[in-house]
């Protein structure tokens, strides 16, 4: 099974990379973008097909390692491989 994890900075945490990209977008004369936030995308591939094991481990991995709860939120999607 594949799990797609997204880690993003919490609202209110300064994102200097996002700001730099926003400046670049503005320099390119795009008018519509008001803000840019950059996060991380992480793929975990599990050998197991046990949905609840995958979900529990993913949650724990995110809480312990992939995201820092002080500054980041995470979200994930479990995708069954066919």
């Amino acid at each position: 099974m594949k799990v797609k994890v997204k880690v993003v900075l919490k609202d209110g945490i300064l994102d200097p990379q996002g700001k730099a990209v926003l400046h670049a977008i503005n320099d390119l004369k795009f008018k519509g973008v008001g803000d840019v936030r950059i996060g991380k995308y992480i793929e975990l591939t599990f050998d197991s097909l046990d949905q609840s094991l995958v979900e529990n481990e993913t949650k724990e991995i995110c809480q312990k390692l992939l995201a820092n709860p002080v500054i980041e939120n995470f979200d994930y999607e479990i995708e069954e491989l066919t």
Partner: peptide, 8 residues
């Protein structure tokens, strides 16, 4: 936490 410097 220690995050990225304000001016990158």
């Amino acid at each position: 936490a220690l995050t990225m410097n304000k001016y990158r």
